[in-house]
Write a protein that binds this DNA or RNA. Structure first.
Lengths: 230, 230
DNA sequence: ACTTTTTATTACCCGCGGGTAATATACGGG
DNA sequence: CCCGTATATTACCCGCGGGTAATAAAAAGT
């Protein structure tokens, strides 16, 4: 007959898909719980028993979805890294002067730092990871650093940013931003967006070759950020 | 090592003193070794056996000087905090405009971040401490934060710093500085002083109500920093 | 209805590392 | 010369927590 609401019975392979998706949903739930607990208590103090308990299951059940505690830690980190890679790609795609790109990067990065998976980028210790995963993390950090330096260098080249040492400048800016991950609390006085706005102006005002009109116009309007984790 | 030849026979109570001083020297040696190892490997991965091994003794010997691993961690942190308290007191004593004081603070704080005990201020996790010690650490951090905010507020009041939100500005500056503790390596390309000079200018250039002549004149000349730990 | 596969549970192992006796050695004092 | 104290060692305890059978319960497939 007419296409019924896309339920279980219409397609024979739906059950299979829905199972796969249920599984993914559970994996994500584990990661969400784990990242929260790891941030709350620190990786070493947080036990898998506690993670399981919060999910109303028992520890061995976790091993259906992950091979080890270390793998969970790594995947928590990976979620945050993917998001950063994502908005860097967007910024690159939009183009613009070095200063414009830098300001967009600062804004997006600041907002990300105010989320659990964002904070995990700077609050987790790569030394808790296997050699293999630790290498991946280092590569990710390096790549972010390169992007900061590149936007600054671009800005100097195109005249939007005053001459300066891109390496040191990137360190100073990224340091400020990374620190957000250590002090931001969702229930605090300032919203993530307010902080991002503030930092975008503050961290770039010394760099502009000429005065810039503040926030709004230079910062890309947020899309509702397709609802992934958290 | 300890006091030269003119000891044993000249004064009868010297042996006692020299014993006490030898003890203190050993305590400090433990702290120096411990802070290094804790930074290298992270507090949880570093074992007291390793600390002892580096000192050519065995684990239980450490318990002659400290009650627990946690106490060692705390005292490592305390050394760094004392130094910060020290130069803050000096800056207060010298006086000057808010901007001048802020620039001195940034410079001294940056240099401190490039030392082991300085880095320990931001790389150790207070949650590894007892409730009592953790409170002390939080108070220390709070006090540093207050100082940053106060110098900024002073600067706004005396007209040396452009009007801004002291809280956010302090976060941005302290974030940059604290991050030094995460990336600085003594064997790297830049010296601690060079970094401190660079950050002093970079982090305050956007704040000055009027252009400031750079470093040198506004920053107090370093005393050879009486040779304590490290 | 049956078999097979996925998901979960209970019960256990075991290695690591902080901390503690029990004890030996060095050393200053009387 | 012997005693007491400070300092160190060897040998051990034990609790915590990551990880692993063995097995039960629940779905899915046929």
């Amino acid at each position: 007959m007419d296409a019924p609401a896309l339920t279980s019975e219409t397609s024979p392979w739906m059950p299979f898909e829905s199972r796969a998706r249920a599984r993914d949903a559970k994996r994500e739930a584990v990661l969400r719980t784990a990242v929260q607990l790891f941030l709350e208590q620190g990786y070493h103090r947080a036990t898998l028993n506690e993670v399981a308990e919060r999910l109303n299951i028992t520890k061995p059940a976790l091993y259906n979805y992950f091979r080890s505690k270390e793998e969970i830690l790594f995947e928590c980190w990976a979620v945050g890294q993917e998001r950063v890679d994502g908005f860097i790609a967007e910024i690159n795609a939009r183009g613009g002067t070095g200063l414009v790109k830098l300001r967009q990067l600062v804004h997006a990065y600041a907002e990300n730092m105010a989320t659990d998976h964002g904070a995990s980028l700077v609050r987790f210790d790569p030394r808790d990871l296997s050699e293999k995963n630790s290498k991946i993390v280092r590569a990710g950090k390096k790549s972010i650093d390169r992007t900061f330096r590149k936007y600054i260098a671009d800005g100097i080249a195109d005249g939007s940013i005053k001459p300066c040492d891109p390496k040191m400048t990137a360190f100073a800016i990224a340091g400020s931003l990374n620190w957000i991950g250590h002090w931001f609390q969702a229930d605090g006085a300032m919203s993530a967006t307010a902080i991002a706005d503030e930092f975008t102006d503050r961290l770039t005002e010394g760099l502009a070759a000429r005065p810039v009109k503040k926030t709004a116009s230079t910062v890309a309007k947020k899309k509702p950020s397709r609802g992934g984790l958290r």
